[in-house]
Each structure stands twice: as structure tokens, then as C-alpha cells.
Design a protein around this nucleic acid. Sequence first.
DNA 1: GACCAGGCACATC
DNA 2: GATGTGCATGGT
Length: 220
Amino acid sequence: MSANSRFIRRIYNLLNKSFGPQYWWPGDTPFEVCIGAILTQNTNWKNVEKAITNLKNEHLLSPIALRDTSLSELAGLIRPAGYYNIKARRLKSFISFLFDEHEGSLSKMSKQPLEELRHKLLNVHGIGPETADSILLYACYKPIFVVDAYTKRIFSRHKLCEEDSDYRDIQNLFMKNLPNDVKLFNEYHALIVKLGKDYCKKKPNCLKCPLGGKQWNLKL
DNA sequence: GACCAGGCACATC
DNA sequence: GATGTGCATGGT
């Protein structure tokens, strides 16, 4: 086993021991996961929850209901999640894709092979790498590792990737060094977000961080 | 009142 | 292909 692989697994074990299971994604249905993945782009999850609650209260959390909702009404309801005009359009483009390609059915969409579906999702307006991979992993249960701002910040601070590593570089760091396991990818990303929220914001709080101290050259 | 949060598309060089 | 900018609310 390579040194990288040992590091990656050791960090997972540390986080898992410190935080325990995270029960991700925070959403009731695969469809809600997709909506949340778009709404949470560059946005605090608390604000996303308000927007999702609004949609639930209006009984709009289904592909058909959202398809039949006007852009302006949708924008008004998701307002708390920020960038609401842009995100309303992004939600609509995802819904259009779902109906055009998969009869409005997430379970049909999920039957597509991973790489083919990923490629198609990336062609949907408003869906980039992180949103696509969140949908693939947490809504379609495909084995793909989600990289977010926390992942990049934490791993570059600890010199486990370069500061200018791109999305695929970091994703490969995990996927080449871990077994191809949906449950593991699910839990690992969730633990990274937990670590990020609690200890590794832009101004880090290293004192009680499970990764230990202010020394950002991890010695495990 | 500044700074930040689980990105992405687009313009410009 | 790299770099900069707009999008926007709500919490600290």
C-alpha cells in the first residue's frame, strides 16, 4: 500500500473515530438531494434548509410540481438560499434535463453508467463538478468522490495536495487510494464537511482539531 | 459593517 | 488556459 493511501485511510479513521457516522446527505429523498445540491452552491446549508422548507410547504418537492412552477414563483420561494434568480434557472434546467432524457424519473436516470451520466450532468446549465458528483453519489448511489471547498482547503493546508490542484486531481487522490465503495465515499465526504465546519473555516480553529495542532504537515 | 458559506458561468486578456 | 467578476441571503 502506498504512503498516500495510508495517509488517506488514516485520516478517515481519525475523523470517523472523532465524529462518528454523519448520516448523509441531509435530505429525505434522492430528489431532495438533487435540489439541495444545486441550492447549496457557495451557500450556507442553513439557508438552503429554509428554501427547501418553503418548497415543501408548497408541495413543490417533486419533478412534476417543479416543472409546472413558474420561474418567478420558484425564485421567490428559494430566496433564502441566495443567488435565487440564478438558482431558479439552474433548478429548471436540471428538471428539463430530467424530463427530456429520463422521463422525469430519478431512478431511471440512475440506471445510466456512472461516467456517461456524469458527462451528461456536466452539460446541464448550472451543474458543475461538485454538484454533479453530489447528485451521483448521494442521489444515484454511484461510487464517485465529492470534492468541495473544505476538502481542498483542509488537504492543501496539510500538504496532501497542491494549493493549485484542480478538482479532478483531488478527486483522483481519493479514488486511486481508496476502495471503490459508495458507503465509504459518502461517509468520508460528510466527515470532511463536519471537520471543515467545526475547525477548518478560512480562519481555522486548530486547537481541538482531530487532525491535531497547528502543524499542517501531518505526521501520522 | 465586514466577512463568510458544501459553485458555476461568463467575460476578458 | 489562466484570472477576475457577478450572483445574494442570512449568520457571526
